[in-house]
Design a protein around this nucleic acid. Sequence first.
RNA 1: CGGGGAGUGGCGCAGUGGUAGCGCACCUGCUUUGGGGGCAGGCGGUCGGGGGUUCAAAUCCCCCCUCCCCGACCA
Length: 621
Amino acid sequence: MLGSGCECRTAGASNTSGKVGNISDLQGRGSGPGRPGDAGSLRPMRMSALFLRTLRDDPADAEIDSHRLLLRAGCIRRVASGIYSWLPLGRRVLAAVEGIVRDEMDAAGAQEVLLPIAQPLDLWARTGRDATYGPLMFRLADRKEAGFCLSPTAEEAITALVAGEYSSYRDLPVNLYQINWKYRDELRPRFGLLRAREFLMKDAYSFHADTDDLRRTYAEMYAAYQRVFTRCGLTFRSVEAQAGEIGGDVNHEFMAVAAIGEDDFVWCTGCDYAANVEAARRHGRLHQEVPAVDAPVDAPVDAPERDRVHTPDLPGIAGVAAHLGIEPSELLKCIAFDVDGELGLALVPGDREVNPYALTQALAPRSARLYTDDDFVARPDLPKGYIGPDFTGAALVVADPLVGEERPWVTGANEVDHHVRHAVLGRDFRVDLWADLVSVVSGDPCPRCGARLSVDRGIEVGHVFQLGTKYAEALGAAYTDADGHDHPMVMGCYGIGVSRIVTAVVEEHHDDRGIVWPDALAPFAVHLVVLPGKGDTAAAVVGAAEALYADLRAAGVAVLYDDRDASPGVKFADADLLGMPWRVTVGAKGVARGVVERRRRADGTEDEFPLLEAAARLASA
RNA sequence: CGGGGAGUGGCGCAGUGGUAGCGCACCUGCUUUGGGGGCAGGCGGUCGGGGGUUCAAAUCCCCCCUCCCCGACCA
C-alpha cells in the first residue's frame, strides 16, 4: 500500500541531491516569477523580520486539527467564510505543493497555461452548465450588465480555446493545465481550507483524436498523480468513482486517508479493489445464484402466517426493532423511488441502506431517483415509514440479493402505525428485479476476490476523468482526420486540489505540539534557534549563531533564524508549532563544548555537530 | 434552505440597566534564561450594524448583517 513517506525525488528543478530528508531538497525551490501561486525561491529569513504572529490559544471556530494549526502557526487567516489569506509561511507551503504539481505535470507532457477567472456566462450557456451549476457559481455583472462568473472549473474555457486554435488530427493530442484560483459558493463552507469557497486547483485538460489515445494520456496522468501525492507525503488511495451526470465513462478519485474526510471510500483488504461509496459494490448473491425475474420463491414450509402488529408512532427501523425486541436486520426496509414517473419500491434489509447510485444504475436506461419529502406530500396514500413490499400502488419492486434469503421478515403493513410479521418472499410479496442495491459497509465481501472490504474516510485531493466528446461537441472543438472527415475531439480532464492538499498534509502530519511538515513542503528546512542566555558568553553565542546563519545562507539552505529576544521556552514552542523538519540550537551549553544541537521534528531524535563544521554538515546532511 | 449557537481589544473569554474588564499577545523598565518565567508600568475596544424603550443600554425590544456547528432522500 501507499506509504506516507516522501518519495526519493527532489522538489524543484534546481535540486542536486535526491536523498530523503536532505536539507538541500529545500534549496532553490519554486519557479519562475509572475505565475499565480509562485512564491519564488526559499530565501532564508530572520524571524524578527518575518510577518508572523503565532497564537497560543486555539481559535474558537477551528474544528479540525489542520485548520486550528494553520491558524495558530500563522499560515492562513480567515477573511470571510471559506475565504482565506495566505501569510508568508502558508504561502511557501502552497508554493511547494504547486512546485511538485508543476514538476510532475510538465514531466507528463502537459503544458501550462493560464485561463481567466472571470468568465462570461455566455460561455457557460453553451454547455448548459450555467443552469446546472446554479447558485454554486459566484456571479457578477459588468457595467454593461453582461453576465460573468468566477470560474468554478474551466472545461468550457479550455475547450473554446482549443477549438479556436486546433482543427487537424496532426495537432493532437495536446494536454494543457493551469494552477489557478477556483470559486464555488458552497452550501456550507467548513473546516477551513477543506471545503472553501475560494481554493487553488490544478486543472488539466487533454484533447485526443480517439479514445485509445485518451486512455494513454489518462494512464500517464494517473501515474503522475500518484507521484504528486507521494511526494507531498500523503497516505492516499485511488478509487473508482461513479460516472457522474457530467458525462464520461471512467474516472478515479484520489483520496487522502483522513478521519475528518468528507467522503467515504471502500477498499479491499485482499486485493487492490477500491471505489468510492457510490461506485462500490459488494459480492452479492447476484454473482452466484440469480432468481429469475418475477420467479416465485418457495416459502419455508414452517413459516407462520403473517400477522399485523400495532407499532404506534414508530416510522423508523430502530424504533420498530426496539419495540418488537428484534434486530434491525430482521426488518425489511421498503424505500420508495420514482422511475419514469411511476412508483417503485427498493427492498433491502433493515440494517442496510440503499445506494441511490446503484439503484439508478440498476434501472438504466430508465430514470430513477429516491423519493423526497415533496414526493411523499404528493402521494398521501403512501404511508411513509409503514410501507410494505406488497404496496398495491407500486409498479416495480427491486430487491437486493440480501432480501433473497429464505426467511420471514418484519415489514410495513401499508397502514400508518402498523407493521406485519412473517412476511415471506414468494408467498406474501413479489420481486420484479434483483439488483445490487445496498451501500457497502465494512466487512462486506469484495466483488473481485471475496476478501473483506473496509470503509474509510478520506479527503478528495485529486480526480481524473475520461470525459469523451460532450464539451467538444457543445463548443465546436473538432478536428479533420486524414481522410478529410470532421470529428469532435475526445477529452480528458484532471484536477488536483492544491490548497486542499495543504490541509490534508497537516491533518496527517501533526502532533499535539504543532505541525510536522514533510521535507518536501516545509516553508524552511532548518529552524535555527539561538539561546544567548545572560552573562559573559552571550555575545559569543550570538556570534556563533550569526556565523552559522550566514554560512547556511551561503550554502543555499532554506533557514529560518529565530533571532528574537525571547525565552528558550517560547522559541522551542514556536519551533514545534511551525514544524520545520530540523531544529538547530545554538546555546551557551553547546557553544561551551564547541557544538550545536540538531533535532528532528518528526521523531525528536537529536544529534550534535562541532560548531566549526556545522554549516557544512547541515548543508550536506 | 431547516435547526442550534455565537458576535465585547490581535487571540481566548467574563460582564444581564448605572464609569467596559480579565488572561494571552503587544510596548517600556527591571529581573530571569535549555521548554510558553517573575515584578512594575503602559498602549489598544464605534461592545457586529441600524432603529426603539429608558434619566441611563454591551445588557431590554424590533429589524438587518456576519460567523460557527448539525441536518438537508434511508422512511
